[in-house]
Design a protein around this nucleic acid. Structure first.
Lengths: 114, 114
DNA sequence: TTCCTATTTCGTTAGTTGGCGAAATGTAGT
DNA sequence: ACTACATTTCGCCAACTAACGAAATAGGAA
């Protein structure tokens, strides 16, 4: 039951939903996500941690960046099924669409180190 | 997005998951659920309210009882899909199984008014 | 080795949530 | 109309959570 609760809690916050929806498009580093969501880096880092601990995303070091992406391993028994649902959900949501539009221009080489 | 958040929040609590899992078996009144979960009536009522507001269950007056049951109307855009998932989830969970076993003996005619 | 950058962790604050008991409400039965 | 019963709402409390800034950590580049 704890694995299911973890997933539901992870998805109970609007900003964490936004993170998941933009990561569906492509992998991103913390400061790119920070830029898109306009939150503090520390807040984003914590949100990412909760999503990762729930089995919904994973991370990978890439030079000086840590890239986060959707985790399709399914190590959390329930995550694959939820991720399948989430792929179809909220794609018409105005805020999600606005976030995704920012993906066109977000670029770690220009926004990090600010 | 608020409808999705409502559902995820509703399912983020172990006791609310338990309520949903026993209601999958059959409709129940508040005092039957109260007996199975061993919580205060007021607590159960509040949990039921959250599940109902999320579109996962509905209620119906039945004499002096209010019966709650799974809501298959799908008025919350996302609830049908989550309910389909939940039908297969957690059925092996020991606590859920124990709760469901109590369904064999719970009887509003003997437990209410105590 | 040192410096710089990206990220994570920590500490604090304000707001939210799950539990309870008490009070209020709804209504069936007499 | 009154009583009894089932439920809901309210008020309180303790625990939890999302936000931030500061400090600590990780590690790449020079």
């Amino acid at each position: 039951m704890r694995d299911a609760i973890k997933i539901f809690k992870a998805l109970s916050d609007p900003n964490r939903l936004r993170i998941l929806k933009i990561l569906q498009v492509r992998p991103l580093c913390v400061c790119e996500i920070t830029d898109i969501l306009a939150l503090a880096t520390s807040t984003v880092s914590k949100h990412l941690s909760l999503l990762r601990d729930a089995g919904l995303i994973n991370d990978e070091k890439d030079g000086k960046w840590v890239n986060y992406r959707i985790d399709n391993s399914g190590w959390n028994h329930y995550s694959a099924q939820i991720l399948s649902l989430m792929a179809t959900w909220l794609n018409d949501d105005a805020l999600i669409q606005a976030d995704r539009k920012k993906l066109d221009t977000v670029d770690r080489l220009t926004i990090c180190n600010r």
